[in-house]
Design a binder for these strands. Structure first.
Lengths: 194, 194
DNA sequence: TCACAACATGAATAATGATTCATGTTTCAC
DNA sequence: GTGAAACATGAATCATTATTCATGTTGTGA
């Protein structure tokens, strides 16, 4: 029951199952996805899944955690050698949207986690927000951005990115991401006031 | 099977069940809520529910639609006699957050609809976005706000509001909404640039 | 090559809970 | 007052599926 693989073969099986779960959960959603669907996709027996995971929720939560590491990594890379927070803001948003475009299933899983694996979901966004806030505070101290509560701003900016991803990437698979980023960034930089 | 009530009694029962469903779905979530839970809360027999609703999904979708009417109404009222779009933006955001604070269950339902009743969910936000965009375009023509794609902006602003609601209202039941609104509004008005 | 740990199988189990339906009860138009 | 339509009941049905487990198979260190 839920053992960490000790051989290469075991590691491979575990991965095989995780990848299958990603596909199945991502396309059918948690409720409609059955263990049978996942193991069929993974080409293993149902019992095999229970060697590596405690159950349906645990494998889902694991995907969310994996996704957390991945997203943080993608954004961090994109933002790494930007000079100036505003530039980082633009690049980060663009990287995020492109990432959603590339792995829409994974992103759906993160959002569904809000209801299926609340702890994992909260963890995902809380971690992200903490880092985000620190970046903003640093920029604020450097006088790059207006003063103001950076916790609130971090969450506002995350929400903005999520909504754009949902509407312009998941729903319309063919909108011009660059255009969306440009418009959003103008708002982030200068606000709405004429 | 799913009949529109023709008497006062019928109307009352249907409502009774809807209110019970609101409570039960709102606190336990769709998956964990059973028909038995709902009818117990409503003090009716399980079969009664099926007189007025086709099934578990339909009653859920109905709640989402109801919620749509309600939110639009609340925001419209709050924004009604503001002069200037920016003022409306501030008041609208505040009204939204206070609404989430007052009926957290209902708002949870709308968000869960993304996975449980996608059509209702999409309808909810698409309608909202349409109205929002029109307001922004009007303000733009009046020279009140900077020029820019208002469809993108509308979704960005909706996402921002959603995230703030989730983090500062649903998670922290006691943050100072006024403070959050002030910070967010500063960003909406002037952006981040120093 | 043996022994043993790790891995793999898939049919059986067992719980759950949405939906139906045969049987009442209430309302109200006439 | 009566009959028919509307409403209400809740126990039985029925399908679905997560999880277990008794039984194999594979790989490897000594």
């Amino acid at each position: 029951m839920a053992v960490r693989p000790k051989t290469t073969r075991g590691q491979a099986r575990r991965d095989q199952i995780l990848r299958a779960a990603e596909t199945v959960f991502g396309t059918m959603g948690y409720a409609d996805a059955s263990i049978a669907d996942i193991t069929r996709e993974a080409r293993t027996a149902q019992g095999t899944l229970y060697i590596y995971f405690r159950g349906k929720d645990e494998i889902f939560a694991e995907l969310v955690a994996e996704m957390g590491r991945l997203t943080r990594d993608v954004i961090a890379r994109a933002v790494a050698k930007c000079d100036g927070r505003l530039e980082a803001e633009r690049r980060g948003l663009e990287a995020f949207l492109r990432f959603v475009a590339e792995r829409p299933e994974l992103y759906r899983i993160v959002e569904e986690a809000r209801f299926v694996a609340p702890a994992a979901y909260r963890d995902y966004f809380t971690r992200f927000a903490r880092a985000y806030r620190q970046q903003l505070e640093r920029a604020q101290r450097a006088g790059e951005i207006r003063p103001g509560n950076c916790e609130v701003r971090a969450w506002a900016l995350m929400g903005l990115a999520k909504a754009l991803g949902e509407r312009f990437v998941l729903w319309d698979r063919d909108t011009d991401i660059e255009e969306v980023v440009a418009v959003a960034f103008d708002m982030i930089e200068h606000g709405l006031a004429a």
